[in-house]
Simulated assay, not measured.
Amino acid sequence: MEPHPVAHGALDEAELAQFGLHPDQVIDFSSNINPFGPPAAVLAALRALDPAPYPDRSCLRLRQQLAQRHRCRLEAVVAGNGANELIHLAARALGAPGTTALVAAPAYGEYAHACRLAGMQVVEVRSTAATQFQPDPAALLAAIERLQPRLLWLCSPNNPTGVPVAIATIVELAHACARYGGWLILDRAYLSLERDVAGHDPLDDHAPANLIRIYSLTKSYAVAGLRIGYAIAEPEPASTIARWQPAWSVSSAAQAAALAMLADTAFLPATLPRLWAASDELAAGLRQLGLTVWRSALPFMLVQCADAALTRRRLLAHGCVVRDCTSFGLPEWVRIAPRLPADNARLVAAWREIASL
Rank of each mutant, 00 (worst) to 15 (best):
E2G: 09
E2R: 15
H4G: 12
V6R: 03
A7G: 13
E13P: 14
D24G: 15
S31L: 13
V42D: 02
L43G: 12
L46P: 07
L46M: 06
R47G: 14
A48H: 11
A52F: 13
P55W: 02
R63G: 01
Q64Y: 11
Q64S: 12
Q64G: 10
R69M: 13
R73G: 15
R73H: 14
L74W: 07
E75C: 08
A76L: 09
V78M: 01
G80I: 00
G80E: 06
N81I: 07
G82Y: 03
E85L: 08
R92K: 14
G98K: 09
T99C: 14
T100D: 07
A101Q: 03
P106F: 04
E110Y: 15
E110C: 12
Y111R: 12
A112C: 06
H113D: 05
H113E: 06
A114N: 04
G119V: 00
V122W: 02
R126A: 09
S127V: 06
Q134F: 10
P135I: 04
P135Y: 06
D136R: 08
P137Y: 05
L141W: 09
A142R: 07
I144M: 00
Q148S: 10
N158P: 08
N159H: 12
N159T: 11
A166I: 07
V171N: 09
L173Q: 10
Y180I: 05
Y180G: 10
G181P: 01
W183S: 07
L184R: 06
L186H: 06
Y190P: 11
L191G: 10
S192M: 13
R195C: 01
R195Y: 05
G199W: 06
H200K: 11
D201C: 02
P202C: 04
D205T: 13
P208T: 01
A209Y: 09
A209D: 12
I212F: 03
L217F: 07
T218N: 12
Y221C: 08
I228L: 06
G229N: 05
Y230N: 01
I232A: 05
E234R: 07
E234K: 07
P235S: 03
P237D: 00
I241N: 02
R243C: 10
R243S: 12
R243P: 09
Q245L: 03
Q245V: 01
A247I: 10
W248E: 12
S251G: 03
A253Y: 00
A254L: 04
A266K: 11
F267G: 04
P269N: 02
A270W: 06
P273R: 02
A277R: 09
E281A: 15
R287S: 00
Q288G: 02
S296D: 15
A297T: 07
F300P: 13
L302R: 02
D307K: 11
A308C: 07
L310K: 14
L315D: 01
H318T: 10
V321L: 15
V322W: 00
D324A: 04
T326K: 09
F328S: 00
L330P: 01
A337S: 15
P338T: 04
L340E: 08
L347Q: 03
R352N: 05
I354Y: 03
I354T: 06
I354K: 01
